[in-house]
Design a protein around this nucleic acid. Structure first.
Length: 532
RNA sequence: GACCCCAUCGUCUAGUGGCCUAGGACACCGGGUUUUCAUCCCGGCAACACGGGUUCGACUCCCGUUGGGGUCGCCA
C-alpha cells in the first residue's frame, strides 16, 4: 500500500511555526517511505479564508522546499460531496436534523448506539455517577442532559450523547429505579418528545470507550459519555470541519493523518465518522505542540512565530528546516546538523517526542552560523545582498570591495541580517557610542599613541602584516601590552567593539579612511593627555 | 469542573530493566588558538517532578499525587 499523507492548513492567517513543523513532519514521513505528500487547503470557512494567506503559505512551503504531489485540493470545491455524504449518513440513521432553538436545523452526527466492530468502541463495566436531584434528567434522541454535582454541592449542567450511557438506569433515593432505558433506546427515537425524569440521584450505565491507535502514543481512549453528538452540516447548509476533513481524507485516500496533538479530541470523533461512512480509519499520529519562551502556546503576540519572520531575520531555509525537524524529533543519536537527505533517511516515528517543545532562538542562531560558515562564498554573498537590499550604503557599494568585506566577515556571521553592522566599511562618518568611547578611548595615553601610530601608518605598505608591525612598534615603544591597544584602536576605526581581525579591517578600509578616523579620534574623541 | 494528553540539565534532546558515577547540543562560566573580534579547540556548571509498588536490580514497567497543556463552538 502506498503511503499518502496530507498537510491541511486553513488559510485564515499567517502560517504558524507549529503548522509548518507539522507540514515538515508530513513531508518527511512521505519522503522517507516513498509515499505521497498532498496539500489540502481547508477553506470551508469562507468568511475568514483569503487568497493572501494561501499565497503566503505556498511561498513559505516553497522557501522550505516542501514540494507536494499533485495540485492542492481546495476544500470548498467539495462541499457538494460533503453534503451528499451527510445525506447518506442521515438515510442510514447515522445523522439527524436538529434545530437548536430558533433558526433552521443543522445536521448532527449521531454517536452510534449499536456499533459494529468497525467502530472501535469497546464496552467496559457498569458505573454509577451521582447527579443533582433538583435538576431533572432529560433523555431524547439528541442526547442526555443532567446535572453533575460540584465539590460545593452545586449543580453542573452536563450532557452526553445517547450512546454514552448504555442501558441507562436513573436511580432515586433508597435505590428506587425511577427510569430504565432498557436495551432498546428506540423509546426515544427521532420526533418523540424528550423523556424527563425527576428526583434522580444516580445515573447507572455501562460505560463504553471509543479508541484508536496513535503511532507514537499507543492506544488512546475516551469514554463515550464525555462526548456529544456533533454538528456536521451547519444550519446554513455549509459542511463543518469534521465532516469535510474526514470526507476529504477518504477522497484523497490518506493513509496516515499526522497533525498536532490539539486534534486528539477530534480524532476520537473522526474515527467514528470514518466508520459511519464505511471506510477504515487511517493511522493517526499526533505531534506535540511548539510553545513559546513562557512555555505557553504561540499566539499572535509572540515574535518569531511565523516562518516568514525567520526568513526576514536572516535565517537560511536549510537551517530552519533542520532545526524544526529536530524540534520534537531526534534521529536517536548525537547528530544535529544534518543534510536534508540524511534527515529524510533517518526520519522515523519512533524518534518523535511526546511532550511540547520550546523553540530556542539562540540554538537556531548557532546552527545558522554553522550553515553560513559552510556556504559557498557566492551563495553567502547573495544572502547578504538580499538582507541589505534596503540599505543605500550597501546598494551603492563597489562590488569588488563589497566582496572583500563579505569574505572577511563570513566566518563570523550568524544571520544574514548581521551584515547591517558592516556599515563602517562603507560610510564616511561614523556615529560613536559615548560609553564605548569614554571607556576605551578617553583614557590617558591613548591620544599620543594614536598620534604616533598615525605617523607610522603614513610610511608603510597598507597590508595586514605591516600594519600589525606598526601597531606593535607603537605599543612596545610606549610599554603598552600589545593586546590592550587593539580595542581602543578598533573602536576608533570602526565605532564598534566587535568585528573581524583589526589588522585586516584596517587594511581593507584603506589608508585614507583609516587615517581619517584616527585623526578624528585624536582631534575629537581622545582625552587631553598632553601631560604625557 | 469533566474528559483527554504529557512530564530527563534553563532550553532542545539521548536513554526502550543492569552498559547511567545519566550522554550530546544551545546558553552560561573558565582556559587555549605565537597577546585584537569571531570561528574553532579544551574544561566546568547543570536534570531523571514527588510518593508508592513490581523486580535481584528501575530514568526505563504499574498505580497514585503534583504540575503543565489540550478539548468541552452551527472555528479549523
Amino acid at each position: 500500500m502506498q503511503i499518502r499523507v496530507r498537510f491541511a492548513p486553513s488559510p485564515t492567517g499567517r502560517v504558524h511555526l507549529g503548522n509548518m513543523r507539522t507540514a515538515i513532519f508530513n513531508w518527511l514521513f512521505a519522503r522517507h517511505h516513498g509515499g505521497r505528500f498532498l496539500l489540502r487547503i481547508e477553506d470551508t470557512d469562507r468568511q475568514r479564508s483569503h487568497q493572501g494567506a494561501i499565497d503566503q503559505l505556498l511561498a513559505e512551503m516553497t522557501w522550505l522546499d516542501l514540494d507536494f504531489d499533485g495540485d492542492p485540493l481546495y476544500q470548498h470545491t467539495r462541499s457538494d460531496a460533503h453534503r451528499a455524504a451527510a445525506d447518506r449518513l442521515m438515510q442510514a440513521g447515522h445523522a439527524y436534523a436538529y434545530a437548536n432553538g430558533d433558526g433552521d436545523a443543522a445536521v448532527l452526527f449521531r454517536i452510534p448506539l449499536d456499533p459494529g466492530p468497525e467502530y472501535s468502541i469497546v464496552e467496559r463495566e457498569r458505573i454509577s455517577v451521582d447527579i443533582h436531584p433538583d435538576v431533572p434528567v432529560t433523555i431524547s434522541s439528541a442526547g442526555i442532559t443532567y446535572a453533575a454535582i460540584s465539590r460545593k454541592g452545586k449543580p453542573i449542567p452536563s450532557e452526553c450523547c445517547l450512546a454514552g450511557m448504555m442501558r441507562l438506569k436513573i436511580v432515586g433515593d433508597n435505590g428506587v429505579v425511577r427510569y430504565d432505558l432498557g436495551k432498546d433506546p428506540g423509546a426515544v427515537t427521532d420526533g418523540q418528545p424528550p423523556v424527563t425524569v425527576d428526583n434522580g440521584t444516580t445515573l447507572s450505565f455501562i460505560r463504553r470507550d471509543v479508541r484508536f491507535h496513535d503511532l507514537v502514543r499507543g492506544d488512546l481512549s475516551k469514554p463515550l459519555d464525555s462526548i456529544k453528538d456533533f454538528v456536521i452540516v451547519r444550519s446554513d447548509g455549509h459542511p463543518v470541519f469534521h465532516l469535510a476533513n474526514v470526507c476529504d481524507d477518504i477522497h484523497q485516500q490518506i493513509t496516515h493523518v499526522i497533525r498536532g496533538d490539539d486534534h486528539i479530541e477530534n480524532s476520537y470523533r473522526h474515527v467514528l465518522l470514518f466508520a459511519a461512512l464505511g471506510h477504515a480509519a487511517p493511522a493517526f499520529l499526533h505531534l506535540p505542540m511548539i510553545v513559546n519562551r513562557e512555555g505557553k502556546p504561540y499566539s499572535k503576540r509572540d515574535g518569531d512565530a511565523y516562518i516568514g519572520e525567520l526568513r526576514e531575520a536572516g535565517f537560511m531555509n536549510s537551517t530552519v528546516f533542520n532545526y524544526l525537524a529536530l524540534l520534537g524529533w531526534s534521529p536517536g543519536d548525537d547528530r544535529e546538523k544534518m543534510s536534508r537527505a540524511d534527515i529524510v533517511n533517518a526520519f522515523d516515528v519512533s524518534g518523535i517526542q511526546l511532550s511540547a517543545a520550546q523553540m530556542d532562538i539562540r540554538k537556531l542562531q548557532h546552527m545558522n552560523g554553522q550553515y553560513i560558515a559552510d556556504l559557498p562564498f557566492d551563495a553567502f554573498l547573495h544572502g547578504v545582498e538580499q538582507a541589505l537590499a534596503e540599505q543605500p550604503w550597501a546598494r551603492n557599494a563597489d562590488p569588488a570591495y563589497f566582496r572583500e568585506v563579505a569574505e572577511l566577515m563570513q566566518s563570523r556571521t550568524k544571520q544574514f541580517t548581521d551584515a547591517a553592522t558592516w556599515q563602517y566599511f562603507f560610510v564616511d562618518t561614523l556615529s560613536y557610542d559615548d560609553r564605548l568611547v569614554g571607556k576605551h578611548i578617553g583614557k590617558p595615553g591613548i591620544r599620543s599613541a594614536f598620534a604616533q601610530l598615525l605617523t607610522a601608518l603614513r610610511e608603510i605598505a597598507f597590508d595586514p602584516e605591516p600594519i600589525e608591525s606598526a601597531i606593535h612598534a607603537v605599543t612596545d615603544d610606549r610599554e603598552i601590552p600589545r593586546g590592550k591597544f587593539n580595542l581602543p584602536l578598533r573602536i576608533a576605526v570602526t565605532a564598534s567593539n566587535t568585528g573581524a581581525g583589526i589588522y585586516e579591517v584596517m587594511a581593507l578600509l584603506g589608508r585614507d579612511r583609516t587615517l581619517a578616523r584616527l585623526t578624528h579620534a585624536v582631534d575629537s574623541l581622545c582625552a587631553d593627555d598632553s601631560e604625557q
